[in-house]
Simulated scan of single mutants.
Amino acid sequence: MRWENVYVAGLGAYLPEQVQTAEEAVALGLYDAEESVGNGIRAVRVANDEEAPPVMAAAAARRAIDRSGHQDQDFGLLLHASIGHQGQEFWTPANYVQNETIGGRGTALEIKQGSNGGLAAVELAASYLSARPSETAALVTVADAFKPPYFDRWASDNQQVYGDGAGALVLSKRGGFARLLSTASLTDATLEPVYRGVTGWTPAPFAEGKPVDLRSRKRDYLLRHEDAYEQTINQMTVNAGQVLQEALDDADTKLADTQHFVHANIAESIATYSFYMTLGIDRATTTYDWGQDIGHCGGADQLLGLNHLVESGRVKAGDKIVTMGVGVGFMWTVAVLEIESVPSW
């Protein structure tokens, strides 16, 4: 989708101060030493008991709002994305973030699309603003804290190490430091069983009192026949290439003509194959070296990466940024942005 007059006006991030390194996790018996080498994640941020995901989201949002120059009454929409537990059962974290930030009676909704939640929310927010002439701004927040005993950040999944944190982004029709040129999304629901597994249903979260076991679910699916793994990887690769090309075409640009690429803080082996080898991305154009000290923060990775690009002074006017997400389901979203001016922050 090609967008007209939709801008990124503000970005914000919140990362807990507490750090746990991969080396410490290996020494404590929490993390396999061989996996540590292959995954390449050096450290993660760990939220304390008071840093529930919506609390972190609100902190990131306040910074993004302040940087955007928008007033609370400008916001007609808030979308909050997450993967895991949000600090309480049977409640609506999006409304908590709304009450702690912009207030008002605008629409507040929760997005559940795994690690693609942040970028999926950005595309939905752009659609909302474009469809409603009276609306000026939309706020997107993403936050997660992968805490025991429900989730084991070092062992619940393979080729993923999960860190805690939150990102926020303000979309505006009034203007901003970056223009949203295009977005594209693609869903392939035939891959939905990869993370559901084949063992049946559970009656409630944490029903067996054991941490979430994503490894077994993926293994059961990918070993169902001898070609399943290769077929799944090929299917994902084709889908990723298709959605990337669609976004680039709608932005009237080529990948070689962009200056920055922001992807998730995934295992180094996956990043190398999926982005640097298959797509020909230059690692130096990414935020991955920084992300290796953050870990995979779910759907917040892309917003955190964009925030880091700007805060670290790596962007200049005229630069084009491609950011790509993929989430269980499976869903891919790509956004292409162009820097209009370098913000003071």
Score class of each variant (00 low, 15 high):
residue 43 A to Y: 05
residue 72 D to C: 02
residue 70 H to L: 13
residue 102 I to Y: 04
residue 86 Q to K: 01
residue 131 A to G: 11
residue 114 G to H: 00
residue 70 H to S: 09
residue 110 E to P: 02
residue 59 A to R: 15
residue 151 F to E: 15
residue 46 V to N: 02
residue 86 Q to Y: 00
residue 109 L to D: 03
residue 96 Y to I: 10
residue 54 P to R: 01
residue 113 Q to E: 12
residue 30 L to W: 07
residue 87 G to R: 02
residue 65 I to A: 12
residue 76 G to H: 03
residue 41 I to T: 14
residue 123 E to Y: 04
residue 38 G to W: 00
residue 51 E to P: 04
residue 41 I to E: 07
residue 26 V to A: 11
residue 138 A to Y: 02
residue 35 E to S: 14
residue 102 I to M: 13
residue 35 E to Q: 14
residue 71 Q to D: 10
residue 143 A to H: 01
residue 93 P to S: 11
residue 110 E to R: 02
residue 77 L to H: 09
residue 74 D to A: 11
residue 37 V to K: 12
residue 109 L to R: 06
residue 26 V to W: 01
residue 112 K to P: 06
residue 133 P to S: 13
residue 88 Q to T: 05
residue 72 D to T: 07
residue 103 G to K: 00
residue 138 A to N: 11
residue 52 A to R: 15
residue 62 R to E: 14
residue 134 S to Q: 14
residue 87 G to F: 06
residue 28 L to E: 14
residue 133 P to K: 12
residue 143 A to I: 00
residue 83 I to K: 05
residue 51 E to R: 00
residue 35 E to P: 09
residue 132 R to P: 05
residue 37 V to P: 12
residue 121 A to D: 11
residue 52 A to M: 14
residue 128 Y to G: 06
residue 82 S to A: 13
residue 68 S to L: 01
residue 129 L to F: 02
residue 67 R to D: 05
residue 79 L to H: 07
residue 46 V to G: 07
residue 50 E to V: 02
residue 49 D to N: 10
residue 27 A to P: 03
residue 67 R to G: 06
residue 130 S to V: 02
residue 90 F to P: 03
residue 53 P to Y: 01
residue 46 V to Y: 05
residue 60 A to E: 01
residue 123 E to Q: 13
residue 56 M to D: 10
residue 120 A to T: 13
residue 139 L to N: 03
residue 121 A to Y: 06
residue 141 T to Y: 08
residue 83 I to A: 10
residue 43 A to L: 03
residue 86 Q to D: 08
residue 78 L to M: 04
residue 122 V to L: 15
residue 30 L to Y: 03
residue 39 N to H: 11
residue 88 Q to W: 09
residue 86 Q to A: 05
residue 149 P to M: 08
residue 137 A to T: 04
residue 81 A to S: 15
residue 129 L to A: 05
residue 149 P to G: 11
residue 115 S to N: 13
residue 42 R to G: 05
residue 142 V to T: 15
residue 139 L to T: 06
residue 32 D to E: 11
residue 28 L to G: 08
residue 143 A to F: 02
residue 40 G to R: 00
residue 147 K to F: 01
residue 138 A to C: 09
residue 147 K to G: 06
residue 151 F to W: 08
residue 140 V to R: 07
residue 67 R to L: 10
residue 25 A to Q: 02
residue 136 T to E: 15
residue 85 H to A: 05
residue 120 A to K: 02
residue 101 T to C: 13
residue 69 G to H: 02
residue 41 I to N: 10
residue 73 Q to H: 14
residue 139 L to H: 02
residue 127 S to C: 09
residue 90 F to W: 12
residue 135 E to H: 12
residue 131 A to T: 07
residue 42 R to Y: 04
residue 152 D to T: 04
residue 42 R to K: 13
residue 140 V to G: 13
residue 37 V to Y: 06
residue 150 Y to M: 10
residue 69 G to S: 05
residue 149 P to D: 03
residue 81 A to I: 00
residue 115 S to H: 12
residue 128 Y to D: 10
residue 27 A to V: 00
residue 38 G to M: 12
residue 131 A to F: 08
residue 57 A to P: 09
residue 66 D to P: 00
residue 47 A to H: 06
residue 135 E to G: 04
residue 119 L to H: 11
residue 53 P to Q: 06
residue 148 P to D: 07
